[in-house]
Design a protein around this nucleic acid. Sequence first.
DNA 1: TTCATTGTTCGATAACAATCGAACAATGAA
DNA 2: TTCATTGTTCGATTGTTATCGAACAATGAA
Lengths: 102, 102
Amino acid sequence: MRELHHPTRDSISLPQVLHALSDPIRLCIAAQLDCRGDLPCGTFCETAAKSTMSHHFKVLRLAGVITQRNEGTSCFNTLRRDDLEARFPGLLDAILRAAEEL
Amino acid sequence: MRELHHPTRDSISLPQVLHALSDPIRLCIAAQLDCRGDLPCGTFCETAAKSTMSHHFKVLRLAGVITQRNEGTSCFNTLRRDDLEARFPGLLDAILRAAEEL
DNA sequence: TTCATTGTTCGATAACAATCGAACAATGAA
DNA sequence: TTCATTGTTCGATTGTTATCGAACAATGAA
């Protein structure tokens, strides 16, 4: 299985993070990871195709919002809280809090 | 001159706000309005065409990030701080603070 | 080995977004 | 009235994004 690329903390870009979280599906993924902890990709597929979800996870990963690690046949996702907090203090919390109001 | 539409405070949508601010030019516009106060559209045109800038201001307005008012031949822009703070507490500040680091 | 599970990748399509120049509209000054 | 200033709108182009289904890959269980 191929290595998954993750941006370093310092190379996380604000516009890219905002763009990643400006999609309702991806915002929902981040919110779920926030309140329920690490989860495999399959947990989220409601109505969208698997390939669609895979795409959204990739966007979040490349933007530096989540890390992904393969475990068996699953792919676990983790919010990069510490990295985001260090790079953009208060940003993730503000967005997740705002996302609750939906 | 046509009436400019502005969304009500309650109808401001988080994904739309994040999308509006995920563009570097629009993020820069918001940052300038934040630190320099209300400014006419013309203040910002660096390299982009007038029509391009006009488009970006419209995106910010329709997302609820700014208000626009015509004064003479100019169009003044104002950050909707209070509305954004009421709807999404801490969000705008966090984004603007993060944007300084560029 | 065979099969089910879980994701990823690929190719296609359709929708959306950024950009530009040209034409237009509104204002205010000469 | 005429002109310069300031923006907006329109149409076109180019590029990006979201979405799907089909094919593929990796793992682990039977």
